[in-house]
């Protein structure tokens, strides 16, 4: 694991494998990384917003639990983004297949399930009659 972290911070190490590709591929990889980073930042912002703009929920600390889940998801997206960037760049330099990943599917499912739970919560409140 420490070796992977060292690899993210060491451009020299990355340059030592394979051949230098067309710079446009590297820039496209960098932009994909930045798009993932913004996805992570949006999740972090969502967590921070949930913590300060949601009214207190009927379940004790449910608001804080939602906020912390979003924050941790955002942090995980950021760490995974830099790892995927490094592995993709390596594959491009070596002319290998790009690394496959289940992460986008897992993230999409998590966000989808979270949204469904919120829809259910809103409906229960509306039908319950106190909202």
């Amino acid at each position: 694991m420490w070796q992977a972290i060292r690899r993210w911070f060491d451009p020299q190490e990355l340059r030592s494998v394979g051949t230098t590709p067309d710079y446009r591929f590297s820039l496209a990889n960098e932009r994909t990384f930045l798009a993932w980073l913004r996805t992570g930042l949006a999740l972090v912002a969502g967590g921070l917003a949930a913590a300060q703009f949601l009214p207190p929920l009927p379940l004790a600390h449910l608001r804080e639990v939602i906020a912390i889940a979003l924050l941790l998801l955002g942090g995980a997206v950021a760490v995974r983004a830099i790892d995927h960037w490094a592995r993709t760049e390596r594959a491009i330099r070596l002319g290998e297949e790009l690394p496959a990943s289940r992460f986008p599917a897992v993230l999409a499912l998590a966000v989808g399930i979270g949204a469904l739970l919120l829809v259910a919560a809103v409906l229960v409140r509306a039908i319950g009659g106190d909202g």
Binding site: P11, R15, E30, F33, G40, L41, V44, L72, G74, G75
Partner: peptide
Amino acid sequence: AAYSRALPLAALATAGYA
């Protein structure tokens, strides 16, 4: 520069905010 430490640092900042 083809590769920059700016990328891991930006990821670190995001994880830090989380």
